[in-house]
Amino acid sequence: MRPLTETETQTLFSKLANYMGPFIKNLIAPPDSNPSTDQTRMSFRLGNQNRVYYCSEYLANLSTCVARENLLSVGTCLGKFTKTGKFRLHITSLNVIAPHARYKLWVKQNGVMPFLYGGNIVKAHVGRWSEDCPEHQGVVVLGMDDMPLGFGVVARSTAEARRLEPTGIVCFRQADVGEYLREEDTLFTTT
């Protein structure tokens, strides 16, 4: 495990900024943390298979005691760097992103299952959405009970989506919690 380089950090932040906007600073310096102690200072570490983990500095330092091939995971896996240098967010990052999301989309009860099976969200299934959301902006998808279900990219801006017919796609799925079952065999493997 090693810290990220400058370019890696920039790529990661630009991806996270799609969903969180300026609230990424809450990840770097949590509001309730004491910066002088390692226990609450958070950091990003690059592990095996180019996976990026979000964990406390204290935990990252402790992880140095474990041999690289034996170390499966540290903290929360946010995603991985592809071979072309882009960053792909995994569903495991939902816990980190959802509390600080900038734009949200609430799905009605009848739209939850289609979304969790990997489908895009149609207008008829939308309960409500954040106002002034531009086109192709990252959004966190929630159930009507505010339970985070995944995240996606909006197909149209809010104004345009209003005029859309009920079967029109409003949000393209990026990740959903159904992946925990569907991608069970590849989500946490290291080889």
């Binding site: 090693r2 810290p3 990220l4 380089t5 400058e6 950090t9 920039q10 932040f13 630009s14 900024a17 906007g21 300026p22 990424i24 600073k25 770097i28 310096a29 910066p35 200072r41 950091s43």
Partner: peptide
Amino acid sequence: VFVDDQESMMTILAIVN
């Protein structure tokens, strides 16, 4: 060159934002 301190992370964040 690794980025491990909060200040440099914040500067990168400011650029990205």
